[in-house]
Write a protein that binds this DNA or RNA. Structure first.
Lengths: 233, 233
DNA sequence: ATAAAACTTGACTGGTTGGTCAAATTTGAA
DNA sequence: TTCAAATTTGACCAACCAGTCAAGTTTTAT
């Protein structure tokens, strides 16, 4: 329930609206979606994820997305009013999923355990859904035109909050005195790397990278470095 | 001199040639460049770096690059035969500069000092030339169509070599037993993050990120985590 | 069964893009 | 100075692009 409200808020933020009123938002008539609508929107968003993540917003074309989704471009435009709207919707889904495990970091838990959990979840997400990671990276790299406001408000609040949590751990002597923000960046950077630079990782590790246990092995290696880097000393 | 030969090799690799013959390469007639040619090629490559790094290969347009370079598109095409050639040339320059500090890691030196030096150099490069970093990231994210071969041959050899160096350090007890490849990835990921995700970093740190000493502070934070994460224990 | 609503598509439009070409202007060696 | 080579540009082209429109086909509620 809370999550639903949040999604509305996020939608509004990404749509560029200022001063979002959640109450007013609730009143907005929810158009129920038919079976075909649900199916086809999903097909389109899935195809969009692939195309946008490799070609970027400008480089992607509706023709290619429609082709991958197995329908005509005209039909795609029946489900989404414009290219930007397809992109925005795909981006929304990604950001929402992206935030959840971060929000779950628990200040009352054991720091090493909490961070181990978070890093593992992020690595798993990068491994299972690399396109989402690449699409997000692309949005940031081109200057975050659609989500700059979101970064500066919602995400910043959340990060500030978690930074305080980490600082609390440091004060209690449970963590080495590292800068919480840079620690968060390091975790994000590293976990994202396995999705965004997948091609490079595979090229450098050869057959090793395609073996079944590779994801667990990467997680183990990253955790071993990061967790020891922040253990109190 | 050695470096010049290497650049030729790299050019050939990026141009997609197989079985590069360095001797034959040397014989290739070097067209001397006029003052105007040197100047304008530099202007174009600088503009191309900006446009390609934000819009990606497909999203970038020659019109925009030409405009940024202060000349007509027709004139740009007088200096470079095609869009892909502009892109390839820009990418070449980046890769060459990118490799140098990595190659300089010295197996005979103190590991902590060598890695401190390398991380600092990489962070500095990301800070001073974020566009180059973003352009490279973009190439990888779209599947590395132009440099996949380079990644699998030249870069792989180099990384394998440095991994052996790191393994040597571990065997001597100078470093914790971490996986060398994942350590390299972690360093690349983190240093690159400050360039590629610049917008996000700035949004989350607010005014702090634009202050003069910010780069040194980031370097300090990253070093503090990574170096402690790999210190022998 | 049937008709309205939902869905799908081919043809089209105005604008953009990478690249060509021929004609002009500028540069620099003699 | 002079003139051939180098440089620069506007006009142009075919391919591509996001989005529209009208005319079909399929689904679904009754």
């Amino acid at each position: 329930m809370v999550k639903r409200v949040y999604e509305n808020f996020l939608e509004a933020v990404l749509a560029g609206k200022e001063n979002v009123n959640v109450e007013a938002d609730k009143k907005r008539p929810k158009k129920k979606r038919s079976r075909i609508q649900t199916e086809n929107r999903a097909l389109i968003l899935d195809a969009a994820l692939q195309v946008f993540s490799t070609d970027g917003y400008r480089g992607a074309t509706l023709d290619r997305i429609a082709e991958k989704a197995g329908m005509s471009k005209t039909n795609l435009l029946y489900y989404f009013p414009s290219k930007e709207d397809v992109y925005r919707t795909a981006l929304e889904q990604i950001v929402v999923n992206w935030l959840d495990p971060f929000r779950d970091i628990d200040g009352d838990g054991d720091p090493i355990e909490q961070l181990r959990r978070y890093i593992t979840l992020k690595l798993k997400a990068s491994h299972e859904n690399p396109e989402a990671s690449r699409l997000f990276a692309n949005e940031i790299q081109r200057g975050a035109p659609l989500i700059k406001g979101f970064l500066e408000t919602t995400l910043k609040s959340l990060v500030d909050e978690k930074a305080k949590v980490i600082h609390g751990w440091i004060d209690e002597g449970k963590l080495a005195p590292i800068d919480p923000y840079h620690l968060i960046f390091l975790i994000w950077a590293t976990t994202q790397h396995y999705a965004d630079f997948d091609v490079q990782v595979s090229a450098l590790l050869g057959s090793q990278a395609s073996k079944p246990g590779f994801y667990e092995q990467s997680a183990q290696a990253v955790l071993s470095i990061v967790l020891n880097g922040i253990r109190p000393r």
